[in-house]
Design a protein around this nucleic acid. Structure first.
Length: 561
RNA sequence: CGGGGCGUAGCACAGUUUGGUAGUGCGCUCGGUUCGGGACCGAGAGGCCGUAGGUUCAAAUCCUAUCGCCCCGACCA
């Protein structure tokens, strides 16, 4: 392909990045990200890369024994409602509605559709196992798209679903897909980790995320030197085993905090470290109010709290419920004198003379100590892990890394096959739900991750397997007839040899073309100039290493390089 | 949905506090000199300042509304 403005618009005016994250990392990193989203959203370059990634995925899915299907959204609303994940669908519509009431025909996910489809097509255990996948655009009305192409409302996803007669079959599928994913991401040139993850809304027993370390990701991975590895959502920590605190005071003392209700306000105004503050959050556990205590610099992990409290349903209480439970408006809750069950994080066991809400408007308490001033119903790990926490398996301290999720695999079990209906008759003639797994890859995130992992100050350094072009031919002096002629021959030769090359045949200064080539970053640059041509040579440059070599013109034309 | 910010030429922005002729850089057009790492000189083209009202002799600038975008938070199959 030849260089053109539609292929690559002017790269000189790349917008300055306004995001705080990229400012911290320097403008250049922001530029790369901008470029990444540009490459994806409107340039043929991004399209070529996506096709290459998709080809790799297809090959590996084929190797793993999965078959490609296409799942349309043409499904009655009842199907979508059966799983219990959707409540607000129109009765007679096949399309989803977003919050603005607009209908859309791209699905957010396809568990329901595939389960119904397979359910109506399998009868016997002989029809199983099945493993089906598709690569399709999905639409999710995300509250907050961000980071260029990393989180968008519409995105490309490879999703696969396996159906088995028994757990052993599911395990085998899960294993096969996990291996296929490793091969896919490796082939795409990514450095990734596989971490245990939360099953979240999907339900099911087990799931793992494929994570790429990247400053623009939205997820955090906790790891220890000794090998502990888990998503921050589910990471647990070891008991710090605080010795009971020895308070200096004799008892809690109230003080006025007019209109100060957040941790920051109090800590700033009264010079109290957030770690010495007892943050008290009111939750509704199966309809009854409970209190959760963590230090001022921690966040409650609701699924951990749910477990400790032994609740099925858990949600944050609203203003009315808080008033009812504590006698004070939001922002002044504290554990002292509360009538509802109190669940404390381990951290609280180490606080002597802490600061907390007084359960009275515009008042807080100081000199509050657990055991003496209040007694929790239970203490345990109820917050998200932080940098420096003990790993739960005693393998050292936890470290948190910002990561981007590029793939996620789940053992779903029978949640969907039971609710939607995908049953088969086993050898004994008994009717049983199929055991399912599901497996997703964010295709455009693979592209984004590849750029984030492979760039330098000058631009992208595409991994070979997914580079939009294998090489770029640059004429140093395009108006010199011999140069243009030699470059044309190389272009024809490489194209005939089946190589994907971009020919920068613009009549631009050499420096402009070199810089553009580095910015777009194809693995190899073939530089044709008068000087070397006189000796029958051209310069071949490796984008990644910067190394150059003089190669015979004839050899380059033959496509052997 | 809550908090904050921004809409000015193809792109990136200044000008708004204190109302008074529409600006800069890149890109674009023409001429010339250059030409192996983002050249230089000269001459140009291009904008009812997001939109709609209002205040005023006068509005990019002040006020109100509205639309759109971005950031922070909540959410995230």
């Amino acid at each position: 392909m030849r260089w053109s403005r539609t292929l690559i618009p002017s790269l000189r005016n790349v917008p300055k990045d306004a995001e705080a994250v990229s400012h911290q990392l320097g403008l250049r990193a922001g530029l790369i990200r901008q470029l990444a989203s540009g490459v994806y959203s409107y340039l043929p370059l991004g399209y070529r890369t996506l096709l290459k990634i998709i080809q790799i995925i297809r090959e590996e899915m084929n190797r793993a024994g999965a078959s490609e299907v296409l799942l349309p959204m043409l499904h009655p609303a009842e199907i979508w409602k059966k799983s219990g994940r959707y409540e607000t669908l129109g009765e007679d519509k096949i399309a989803f509605k977003n919050r603005a009431g607009h209908e859309f025909v791209l699905g957010p996910t396809h568990e329901e559709v595939i389960t119904d489809l397979v359910g109506s097509n399998i009868k016997s255990f002989r029809d199983l196992p099945l493993n089906l996948y598709q690569i399709q655009n999905k639409f999710r009305d995300e509250a907050r798209p961000r980071f260029g192409v990393i989180r968008t409302k519409e995105f490309i996803m490879k999703d696969a679903y396996s159906f088995d007669r028994d757990e052993a079959g599911l395990d085998a599928h899960y294993q096969k897909m996990s291996e296929a994913y490793r091969r896919i991401f490796t082939r795409c040139g990514l450095d990734f980790q596989v971490v245990n993850a939360d099953t979240g809304m999907m339900g099911g027993k087990m799931s793992q995320e494929f994570m790429v370390i990247c400053p623009y990701g939205e997820d955090r991975v906790a790891s220890s030197e000794g090998g502990y590895l888990a998503s921050q959502d589910i990471a647990t920590r070891g008991d710090p085993k605080f010795t009971p605190p020895k308070p200096q005071s004799t008892g809690p003392e109230a003080f006025d905090t007019p209109n100060l209700r957040t941790i920051e306000e109090i800590s700033h105004r009264y010079k109290v470290a957030p770690s010495q503050m007892i943050k008290t959050l009111i939750y509704m556990a199966d309809g009854k109010a409970i209190a959760a205590l963590v230090t001022g610099d921690s966040e409650v992990n609701e699924s951990k709290l749910r477990k400790l409290a032994g609740a099925k349903e858990l949600r944050q209480a609203d203003g009315h419920e808080i008033l009812g439970a504590t006698g004070a408006p939001v922002g002044f809750a504290g554990p002292v004198g509360l009538k509802i069950p109190v669940y404390a994080d381990w951290d609280i066991l180490g606080i002597a003379d802490g600061v907390t809400g007084a359960n009275e408007k515009d008042k807080h308490l100081k000199n509050v100590t657990i055991g003496r001033d209040f007694k929790p119903a239970a203490a345990g790990d109820i917050r998200f892990v932080k940098e420096g926490d003990l790993a739960p398996d005693g393998t050292g301290k936890l470290k948190l890394t910002t990561s981007m999720e590029i793939g996620h695999i789940f053992k779903l079990g029978t949640r969907y096959s039971e609710s939607i209906g995908a049953h088969f008759l086993d050898e004994k003639g008994e009717r049983k739900p199929a055991i399912m797994g599901c497996y997703g890859i964010g295709v455009n995130r693979v592209l984004a991750a590849a750029i984030e992992q492979h760039h330098d100050a000058k631009g992208i350094q595409w991994p070979e397997a997914i580079a939009p072009f294998a090489a770029e031919i640059i004429t140093v002096n395009h108006n010199v007839a011999a140069v243009a002629e030699a470059a044309e021959k190389i272009y024809a030769g490489l194209t005939a040899a089946g190589k994907d090359v971009l020919f920068d045949d613009r009549d631009e200064r050499a420096g402009v073309k070199f810089n553009d080539a580095d910015l777009i970053g194809f693995p190899c640059q073939i530089i044709v100039g008068e000087r070397n041509l006189a000796q029958g040579k051209v310069e071949v440059k490796d984008r990644k290493t910067g190394g150059t070599a003089l190669v015979d013109l004839a050899l380059v034309i033959s496509g052997k390089l």
